[in-house]
Simulated scan of single mutants.
Amino acid sequence: MDTPPLKGTPVPRPATAADLPRLADVLADAFNDYAWTNWTIPTQDRHERIRALQLLYLKHAGLPYGMVWTVPDHTAVAAFLPSPIPDLPSAVLEQVTHAHGDRLAALLEAEELVAARRPVHDWVLATVGVAPTAQGHGLGRTVVSAGVEAIDGHGGTCLLETSDPRNLPFYRRLGFTTDALVSTPGPPVWIMTRTS
């Protein structure tokens, strides 16, 4: 896919370790009132828990094994991981477990239902977020397109999941199609894929 950036949109670049704290802030703000995180993360200290989780995943999975794309002012981020996703170290898994607190069982129950419906894929668009003050300017498309174009260079299928139906048109414009809608005890999950 060769999608030109929107006029005036910053050029995306791969993130570095130094970028990760700021990118975790962006993702924490973006997911602070998202249906899935509301279901799987306790209300108490939710914003801090989301930030901690995003930082863990970016640092221990996204950067070493996948691709993390951002823009110069850090207002947008998209992380892509290879499939299967590499196992996280036990110390990191303990932190993930702690962040989910008493919602961990709900997460695992929903994950079992969703996992059964995932088609075979090579990559996962694990997370994407745009700072609230920067939304509506094409930055989400910019960082997701950067990852999708890198995947297209090697061929393969990219999968994503969303619990917000408002996201579906955005992903469809980027070439993703809906494979399944999974009902869970919490929010529904749309599984979408894009094949190079």
Score class of each variant (00 low, 15 high):
Leu88Asn: 05
Ala106Asp: 14
Asn32Ile: 00
Pro64Lys: 10
Asp122Ile: 05
Val130Trp: 04
Trp69Ser: 02
Ala131Ser: 10
Val144Pro: 06
Ile151Asn: 06
Leu53Lys: 01
Ala105Gly: 10
Ala126Lys: 04
Leu88Met: 14
Asp122Leu: 03
Arg49His: 06
Ser83Asp: 09
Asp33Gln: 15
Ala61Tyr: 02
Gly138Lys: 08
His137Ile: 04
Thr75Tyr: 02
Ser90Met: 14
Leu63Asn: 09
Ala30Val: 00
Pro84Ile: 03
Asp102Ser: 15
Gly140Glu: 07
Arg51Asp: 01
Thr133Gln: 07
Ser90His: 14
Leu104Thr: 00
Ala24Phe: 01
Leu160Asn: 04
Leu160Glu: 02
Val68Trp: 03
Met67Val: 04
Pro42Ala: 13
Pro86Thr: 10
Val148Gly: 04
Ala30His: 02
Val144Ile: 13
Val114Asn: 10
Thr97Trp: 09
Gly153Thr: 15
Pro64Ser: 09
Leu81Asn: 06
Leu63Tyr: 08
Trp69Thr: 01
Pro119Gln: 08
Val143Phe: 06
Thr157Ser: 14
His154Glu: 15
Gly101Ser: 13
Gly156Arg: 04
Glu149Ser: 15
Ala134Trp: 06
Leu160Ala: 05
Gly138Met: 08
Leu139Asp: 05
Asn38Val: 14
Ala61Ile: 08
Ala110Glu: 04
Gly155Pro: 12
Tyr65Trp: 11
His137Thr: 09
Asn38His: 14
Gly156Leu: 08
Val71Cys: 02
Ala91Tyr: 14
Pro42Gln: 12
Val124Phe: 06
Thr142Leu: 07
Asp33Lys: 15
Pro132Cys: 02
Val68Gln: 03
Leu107Tyr: 11
Val148Lys: 09
Arg51Gly: 04
Pro72Ile: 05
Arg51Phe: 01
Arg49Met: 02
Asp152Lys: 15
Leu113Asp: 13
Glu94Leu: 14
Ala61Gln: 08
Arg103Ile: 02
Ala52Gln: 08
Trp69Leu: 04
Trp39Asn: 12
Ile50Trp: 00
Gly129Asp: 04
Thr127Ile: 10
Val96Met: 12
Thr43Asp: 13
Thr127Tyr: 12
Ala106Leu: 13
His137Gln: 09
His60Phe: 09
Ala78Gly: 05
Ser90Lys: 14
His74Trp: 11
Glu112Arg: 15
Thr75Lys: 08
Leu56Arg: 00
Arg103Gln: 12
Cys158Trp: 02
Asp25Tyr: 03
Gly136Cys: 05
Leu56Trp: 00
Arg118Thr: 07
Ala35Thr: 11
Ala52Leu: 09
Leu104Val: 00
Leu93Ile: 15
Ala91Arg: 13
Leu159Asn: 04
Asp122Gln: 08
Arg22Pro: 00
Val148Phe: 10
Gln135Lys: 11
Glu112Gly: 15
Asp87Gly: 12
Val130Phe: 07
Arg141Met: 13
Leu160Trp: 05
Gln95Leu: 15
His154Cys: 14
Gly153Val: 15
Pro82Leu: 03
Arg51Met: 05
Ala134Gly: 06
Val144Leu: 14
Gly156Phe: 03
Val130Pro: 03
Val114Phe: 05
Glu111Ile: 04
Phe31Asn: 04
Thr127Ala: 15
Glu112Phe: 11
Gly155Val: 12
Ala131Phe: 05
Leu139Ala: 08
Glu48Thr: 12
Ala116Pro: 09
Ala126Glu: 10
Ala79His: 02
Glu112Met: 13
Pro89Met: 10
Val26Trp: 00
Leu125Val: 07
Leu159His: 06
Leu56Ala: 01
Lys59Glu: 10
Asp25Gly: 04
Ala116Ile: 07
Ala78Lys: 03
Glu161Asp: 07
Glu94Tyr: 11
